[in-house]
Design a protein around this nucleic acid. Structure first.
Length: 307
DNA sequence: CAAGTGCCTTTATC
DNA sequence: AGATAAAGGCACT
């Protein structure tokens, strides 16, 4: 099956899957393979279409955010030359609609880890607690359900490389399972309210909450601030802050809660209601513009480890 | 190749 | 409010 793409609907599958918003996609040959909820499916992009198998068109459009009017969004966030530069380079990067539960656990695991390590943790978690799905003569695994992680032992979680995050995942999974918490419900609440509810979970701080809101709950004003975004702001938007503030931020390693809120609020007010899109373009630019990124991509073993 | 650094930070405590 | 420490372990330098 295929979805016809035309130039007025920009989409770039490769950039969308490689920009660091999602961790479990794998490329085998020409195709990208992913597991979303209970279904394994594959997709590839040709000159004028998005081709896919084992999913219906509406599901694919929804998952890849093809309903978002990206051209309009990009016009809206084009506030200065730097963001325009990132858009020129990565036009077609879209924010996925991930499953909120998987997204929640993913970003609890993601704290203070690099992307390669995050991929490894989530892969092990799925292999150990998820269900095997055969597709194209390969084995894939669904992401474990709340009850599957709630009943996981501490030792098993540690074996997945979670470290001190094991406790957070355990706690959060139990809370969700026992209270029958419906994360999807947060789609209908406003950004602030949904954020407050997410922050109540163990292991979810400001940064993780903003990622979950942006990547799975349709809160496009969310502007997650990690080390890369902090660097991007210091490099290109320093003059939007008092000198004393930026001086302190550059010196210290980690952001305090109030420093985080200031940077994130800047993003929301400067870029507007689709600030989250701006964040992804800035993030990907900051990571790939760093020369060491290209070196590490080139030297990485193909297939399993990376993408 | 060993040792060091950094990582899409959060929590607990003072 | 802000400062401080601790938390594993993988990947890269």
């Amino acid at each position: 099956m295929r979805i016809k793409l035309n130039p007025s609907v920009p989409f770039n599958l490769e950039v969308t899957l490689c920009c660091g918003q999602v961790f479990r996609w794998e490329k085998h040959g020409e195709w990208w393979y992913g597991v979303v909820r209970d279904r394994a499916f594959k997709a590839r992009q040709t000159a004028d279409a998005l081709e896919f198998e084992n999913a219906d068109a509406e599901f694919v459009k929804n998952y890849f955010g093809l309903h978002d009017d990206l051209a309009m969004i990009l016009r809206g966030i084009s506030r200065d030359d730097h963001i325009k530069q990132t858009i020129r380079m990565f036009k077609g990067l879209r924010i996925l609609r991930q499953d909120p539960w998987e997204c929640l656990i993913s970003y609890v695991c993601a704290t203070y880890k690099n992307i390669a390590a995050i991929r490894q943790m989530l892969s092990k978690l799925s292999r150990m607690f998820g269900n095997k799905v055969r597709f194209d003569n390969m084995d894939f695994y669904t992401f474990p359900k709340p009850h599957e992680l709630a009943t996981a032992s501490k030792t098993q979680l540690l074996n997945c490389g979670l470290g001190y995050r094991a406790e957070y995942v355990h706690q959060t999974a139990r809370t969700i399972f026992h209270s029958k918490f419906n994360i999807e419900r947060l789609r209908k609440t406003c950004y602030e309210e949904a954020r407050t509810e997410l922050l109540a979970f163990q292991g979810v701080g400001s940064k993780a909450a903003d990622c979950i809101l942006l990547f799975s709950l349709g809160k496009f004003e969310a502007f997650p601030v990690d080390v890369w975004i902090k660097r991007a702001i210091m490099r290109h938007y320093e003059n939007h802050f008092p000198r004393e503030f930026t001086a302190r931020i550059k010196q210290e390693g980690t952001l305090t809660r109030s420093q985080y809120e200031k940077l994130s609020l800047f993003g929301r007010s400067y870029f507007g209601k689709f600030a989250g899109y701006a964040q992804e373009y800035l993030y990907h630019y900051e990571r790939t513009a760093n020369p060491s990124f290209h070196v590490s991509q080139a030297s990485a073993k193909d297939g399993e480890r990376l993408f």
